[in-house]
């Protein structure tokens, strides 16, 4: 298997005719972990959702290429089967569908008809990953995310990541709402995935997660685009100074954000 490559070029995304992402560029290769940090409302989730194909977001310009394929021309499920994964900031709850049934359907969708995963193999894999993530066995039979606590939902996003083994994953605030033990568990899951065949983009507000998952690159996003990139030390600096120092350095003036609460 060759190392995957995701190339985002000059991406512009609007929601309800308001441009949120304004010329975003980033390339992620297999084996790399990138982190994006940035103030609330700067378009991080918009970027992630638009790449996955969320129905509410409109891409007005730019391209997203995964291993040479233009994924913007694909349906959401095709993007996923091409190797893309998005751990969502706010995962949906699906009543009446068990976690296990859902996961098996998702795995089989990738494997295709006639090549379904044998039930025993599936159960073994699921058991193993749930163990690793400290998820109680009963969650396999719980309805998908229904009534899950915030932290349980996040863990469940990582469980899916581990079961589906995508080429490129975007993790949108996978650390928000996690207690310190859960944070370590989630980091363990992501680190377990690390390999030349896997690339990852982590969206986070906190340097803390990056202590457990060391990123290769850290990018700061403001006003819909990357305004600065660096190594892990950049995250450290933001933790200490907040965004004001960086804004002053780059001469960024708040406009839209001011109205935001």
């Amino acid at each position: 298997m060759s190392a995957p490559n995701l190339k985002i070029e000059n991406l512009h995304v609007s929601i309800e005719d308001k441009e949120i992402v304004k010329g975003f560029n980033l390339e992620i290769n297999g084996g790399e972990i990138h982190a994006i940090m940035g103030p609330n409302g700067t378009g991080k989730s918009t970027l992630a959702s638009a790449i996955m194909g969320h129905p509410k977001y409109e891409i007005t310009e730019g391209s997203v290429i995964l291993d040479g394929q233009n994924i913007l021309e694909m349906e959401v499920d095709e993007r996923a089967r091409a190797g893309l994964y998005l751990a969502m900031q706010y995962p949906s709850e699906i009543s009446g569908v068990t976690n296990a049934d859902f996961l098996r359907t998702a795995i089989n969708a990738r494997r295709g008809e006639g090549n379904e995963i044998p039930l025993m193999k599936f159960i073994k894999q699921l058991d193993k990953k749930m163990d690793l993530l400290d998820i109680d066995q009963e969650f396999a039979q719980r309805y998908l995310n229904e009534g899950f606590s915030g932290g349980e939902k996040k863990r469940n996003e990582i469980l899916q990541l581990m079961m589906l083994e995508p080429k490129i994953a975007i993790l949108d605030e996978i650390d928000s709402g996690l207690d310190i033990d859960a944070l370590k568990v989630v980091a363990k899951g992501v680190n377990e995935m690390r390999s030349p065949e896997f690339g990852c983009l982590i969206i986070t507000h906190y340097q803390r997660l990056l202590q457990y998952i060391t990123p290769d690159k850290v990018h700061v996003m403001m006003q819909g685009r990357i305004v600065k990139s660096g190594g892990p030390e950049l995250a450290q600096r933001l933790e200490e100074e907040g965004y004001d120092g960086l804004k002053a350095e780059l001469g960024i003036v708040d406009e839209a954000e001011e109205q935001e609460v």
Partner: peptide, 19 residues
């Protein structure tokens, strides 16, 4: 949004509806 969530895991639209 539920359909989007299910499809983002590779499940086809028809299967997502079925679920």
């Amino acid at each position: 949004i539920q359909l989007f969530y299910l499809m983002s895991r590779g499940i086809t639209k028809e299967d997502a509806q079925r679920l």
